[in-house]
Every structure is written in structure tokens, then in C-alpha cells.
């Protein structure tokens, strides 16, 4: 086992995180650049993201809509928002695992907050998600779905989602830098969770009580609900909110303690 660093400043982790936000131009410039580079020589550019998403949703909608025999105007909005939000979640978690590893060159040469590298991942994925969001107005118009005032709540839900994902990224990125195999395990788990979360299927389809109780243990179910339900005009359950908020609080306390302990070690593990 690696010898722990003897002297640790109690506020080092917090300082790192705060200065990452203070130097917001860093993660914004780098995150924007990541997206720009990916689509630089393409004619349609980042709107390929939108196109890919439309294709995927159409196919999934056709296949599963028929299989489940659910009316399409009910099924498709549910599916679309679910897939977009899930794409954001997996993007953050999967790329977050590699957050420090892929910024290796920078970390070993420039002194900047480590959290900047994670915020860069968040920002990059927010830009990508913004492109996908373009589908929503089209969808709402096509199915002439009214947008209720409740939808505003999903913004709150989204903020809560990001807060939660950030602490997960922080913890995962540290562990994954030390134990490289963990990245694979986490990415695998995310794939499994896709099916365990009501994205393609909906909660109403669950007939057994048992399964419903089980669903409550899936943190991403709650995180997804607080973003998706208001957009569809429903209020998320109280349990959804409570789980999301308490998870954010407990998670962040843990993540900060964890980061405090291992922040110094990260450059050595690269």
C-alpha cells in the first residue's frame, strides 16, 4: 500500500474545487475545444449528434413501441428524454473515470486545479446534450404535447443531477487513476444500469411490487425522474427528491474527504 501523505491540509480539496470554478474560463475553453475538435472537419458538425439521436430514437421507438403495445405519443417522449438524460449521465461517469488519466500531460506540467479536468468533462457533455435537446421542441410539436409550468422544475432536477454526478466523478476518477481496471468495471455497470433504469420501459409496466421496491435502490432512477417527469408534465415523487438531495449531501461530504486524502497522490499515479 502506498504510504499516506503525512501532512494534509484540511481545506485542500475545497480549495481545489473552488479555484476550478473561479477559473471557469479554463474548463470552458478546454471543454468547448473538445467538442469543436471532434467535429471540425465535418460539414454538419456537432449536429451529427442530433441526427444520430433522432435515428436512434426513431428505431427504438418503432421497435419497442410495437413490442410493448404502448401508444406512441406516450411512449416516445418518455423514451427520448430518458435517452438524452441517460446519455448525459453515462458521458459524465464514463469520461469522468478517465478524467485525470486523459489529462495526464497537462497535470504533469501545469499547476491547475485537478477538479478543472472533471469540469471540462461536464462542460463538454453539457454542450453535447444541448445539441440533443433540439429534438425536444420538435417532439412536443409533433405530438402536440402542451408544456406545463411544471417543466421548470426539471431545471432544478438537472442541477441536482449534475451536483450528484460531480461527486461520483470525483471519487471514480481518483480510484480509476490508481486502479486502471476499475474504469472497465464502472463502464460495464453503467451498461447494465441502462436496462435497470426505466428508460426504454416505464414504471407503470412494472406489475410486481417486488420489482418496484427494487427500483428504489437504483440511484439513477431517482436522478432521471427529477429531470424527466416535470418535462412530461408530472411531478416527481417525494422519494425521488429526498433520495436525490440526501445523496448529493452525503456523497459530497464523502467525496471531499476522499479527495482531501488522495489529491496529492494523483500526479504520482499517472
Amino acid at each position: 500500500m502506498v504510504r499516506p501523505v503525512e501532512k494534509t491540509n484540511k481545506f485542500e480539496a475545497l480549495k481545489d474545487i473552488l479555484s476550478a470554478f473561479k477559473n471557469y474560463h479554463l474548463f470552458m475553453t478546454l471543454g468547448w475545444q473538445d467538442v469543436a475538435t471532434r467535429y471540425r472537419r465535418s460539414r454538419v458538425g456537432a449536429f451529427w449528434l442530433t441526427i444520430n439521436m433522432i435515428v436512434m430514437i426513431t428505431v427504438l421507438g418503432a421497435v419497442f413501441g410495437t413490442l410493448f403495445k404502448v401508444p406512441i405519443e406516450q411512449f416516445l417522449p418518455n423514451l427520448t428524454i430518458g435517452i438524452i438524460v441517460w446519455g448525459f449521465i453515462t458521458g459524465l461517469i464514463n469520461e469522468g473515470c478517465l478524467g485525470f488519466i486523459s489529462a495526464q500531460d497537462t497535470i504533469l506540467q501545469v499547476r491547475m486545479p485537478l477538479f478543472t479536468h472533471l469540469l471540462r468533462v461536464v462542460w463538454r457533455n453539457m454542450i453535447i446534450t444541448a445539441h440533443n435537446l433540439l429534438i425536444l421542441p420538435i417532439l412536443f410539436i409533433v405530438f402536440s404535447k402542451p408544456i406545463s409550468l411544471i417543466s421548470v422544475l426539471s431545471l432544478l432536477g438537472f442541477i441536482l443531477l449534475v451536483i450528484n454526478l460531480c461527486w461520483m466523478m470525483l471519487v471514480f476518477s481518483i480510484i480509476c487513476t490508481r486502479f486502471r481496471d476499475l474504469t472497465q468495471i464502472i463502464q460495464n455497470a453503467m451498461q447494465v444500469l441502462f436496462y435497470a433504469t426505466p428508460i426504454i420501459w416505464s414504471v407503470e409496466m412494472l406489475q410486481e411490487r417486488f420489482a418496484l421496491a427494487f427500483l428504489n435502490f437504483n440511484p439513477f432512477y431517482h436522478l432521471l425522474s427529477i429531470v424527466r417527469e416535470p418535462l412530461l408534465g408530472f411531478l416527481p415523487s417525494l422519494t425521488n427528491w429526498i433520495v436525490a438531495i440526501s445523496m448529493a449531501m452525503i456523497g459530497w461530504v464523502f467525496a471531499i474527504l476522499f479527495f482531501n486524502r488522495y489529491r496529492k497522490r494523483v500526479p504520482y499515479w499517472l
Partner: peptide, 14 residues
């Protein structure tokens, strides 16, 4: 050089 530029923090010492 990395210690001096604050990239590595010493395993022990200050």
C-alpha cells in the same frame, strides 16, 4: 522541477 513548480507534492517533508 515538478516539485518546484508545485505539480508534485512531496511524499514527506515540506
Amino acid at each position: 522541477l515538478r516539485i518546484l513548480s508545485g505539480i508534485y507534492q512531496p511524499t514527506s517533508g515540506e
